[in-house]
Each structure stands twice: as structure tokens, then as C-alpha cells.
């Protein structure tokens, strides 16, 4: 089995978000980048398949050279090889187009994206990629098992979950549940050493245009101080919620 895991390089969740160039670009100075958490759940499940059934795991990122440290981290976690499409993408459609080109060169049985990236929160690359490849997509995937060609998956829906069956090839949007937090692999020294020897190939991008472009960023307005209500004065709180905030 051939598995492709799509990896997005995102600011650490504790990052303060700032912009530069008159609010047209994200300020990366001082920001620590990590593997998008949803992608890490997906990668962990892929490495599990590698160990159980001998799947081959390839990770791919569409990004510039600054994304290589996280691809090395993926190799240290257990991926067999890495690809980097040498392009700084402008939107999710551009990413999906590049990934589709990768998937047309080599056939993958299972393609794992994250439910969404935590920077642009597009939640679009997986569905677009699957549709470009004319194969099915399971969003918000919280469980997946494969027996020969039969796949059973679960998708989180509002207020519950849905169980589905499918066949390979398939694209899924991984999230927590696919594996648990405690299953995440922290690379050890051996993994880190081995990662240095594993192939990280840089692939030139296909000619393709984005479908949208960001014109400007903006930070939310500063909010006023909290109104504290005494713990004995619950009526006071209810009154504020009803008459001032008008939410009851």
C-alpha cells in the first residue's frame, strides 16, 4: 500500500499573529513552525499502517525551503520519503492542483490531508484534491480501518458521527480521533539520525494559477475589560445578559 500524507507548515498554536508590509503579509519573524496538528494525526495513522502492513509512507508539502525542517521531522517520526513542491502557494486551490499533479505521477492508494490547516483554515485542500482526482473524500475523519480493499471510515458530523464504507483509492481529512494524542510519535535520536539519510526530493511546480488572493490582513479590534459580577449576585449576571448583552 502506498500512502501520501499532505503536510502543511503552520505557526505553533501559541504564536502571536502579526502582519507586515502594510498588513499584506504574515510576519514569520519569531514564529515557531510546526506540522499542522491535523496532519500529524494523519501521519501517525499512516506510520501505524506502515508498521502493521508494510505500507510505504510519503509526505509532501507545497512550500519553499523554509518548510524542510518539518518534512525532516515527518521523516524522523517514520515517513519513508519526502517531497517538496517548490512553490509558495497563494491559496488552497493552488495547493490542491500541485498535489493532484503529484498524485498523477505516482499512484497512491490512500491520500491523507488534515481536516483543515490551522493557519488559513481553508478546510478545502482534501475535498478539492479528491474531486480533481475523481476519487471519494471523507472529511473530518475520526476512524479508519482497511481490510484488503475495503475501507471503513467514520466522519464526525454536527452532534454525532457517521460510519461509511469505501474502496481505495481514497482521500481523507484527518483529525483527532483517527489516533489519540497519546499515540503521537515523538522522534527519538535514532529516528532523527535516520531521517537525515532518507530522501527529500524537491519537485518543480506545475504551471497553475490560484483561484483567489489575499488582499489584506486585519487583527480583531481590542475588546474592553471584562465586567465582573459578584459570585453572590447571580441575578445581576442574568440581568446583564438579558438587558445589556440581550442574549437570553
Amino acid at each position: 500500500m502506498n500512502i501520501l500524507v499532505c503536510i502543511s507548515n503552520v505557526p505553533d498554536t501559541t504564536s502571536k499573529i502579526n502582519f507586515k508590509e502594510e498588513n499584506t503579509a504574515f510576519e514569520t519573524q519569531g514564529v515557531q513552525f510546526i506540522i499542522n496538528p491535523n496532519d500529524e494525526f494523519g501521519l501517525t495513522r499512516a506510520v501505524w499502517f506502515q508498521q502493521k502492513v508494510g505500507a510505504k509512507v510519503t509526505v509532501v508539502n507545497v512550500g519553499d525551503a523554509s518548510c524542510e525542517p518539518i518534512l525532516r521531522k515527518c521523516l524522523a517520526i517514520g515517513a519513508d520519503q519526502a517531497l517538496r513542491v517548490d512553490l509558495q502557494p497563494k491559496d488552497g486551490f493552488e495547493v490542491a492542483t500541485q498535489l493532484a499533479a503529484i498524485c498523477k505521477k505516482e499512484s497512491y492508494d490512500l491520500i491523507i490531508t488534515g481536516r483543515e490547516s490551522i493557519d488559513y483554515n481553508g478546510g478545502m485542500v482534501g475535498g478539492m484534491l479528491a474531486t480533481l482526482l475523481e476519487i471519494p473524500y471523507v472529511a473530518n475523519c475520526i476512524q479508519m480501518d482497511i481490510a484488503s480493499d475495503e475501507v471503513s471510515v467514520q466522519r464526525e458530523i454536527d452532534g454525532g458521527k457517521e460510519s461509511l464504507s469505501a474502496t481505495l483509492p481514497l482521500v481523507i481529512g484527518a483529525q483527532k480521533g483517527l489516533v489519540e494524542e497519546k499515540d503521537l510519535i515523538i522522534p527519538n535520536m535514532r529516528g532523527i539520525m535516520q531521517a537525515r539519510q532518507k530522501p527529500l526530493e524537491v519537485v518543480p511546480p506545475e504551471a497553475a494559477a490560484p483561484a483567489s488572493k489575499v488582499q489584506a490582513f486585519e487583527k480583531p479590534a481590542e475588546k474592553g475589560p471584562v465586567k465582573l459580577v459578584d459570585a453572590e449576585d447571580i441575578d445581576g449576571l442574568i440581568d446583564l445578559l438579558e438587558n445589556e448583552a440581550k442574549v437570553l
Binding site: 499573529i17 502582519f19 491559496d91 494559477a209 490560484p210 483561484a211 483567489s212 488572493k213 489575499v214 488582499q215 489584506a216 490582513f217 486585519e218 487583527k219 480583531p220
Partner: peptide, 9 residues
């Protein structure tokens, strides 16, 4: 944590 203005092409 932020907003952006996105334009379609």
C-alpha cells in the same frame, strides 16, 4: 486570531 480580505480570480 485574525481576518483577511480575499479576492476571487
Amino acid at each position: 486570531k485574525a481576518f483577511n480580505e480575499t479576492q476571487s480570480t
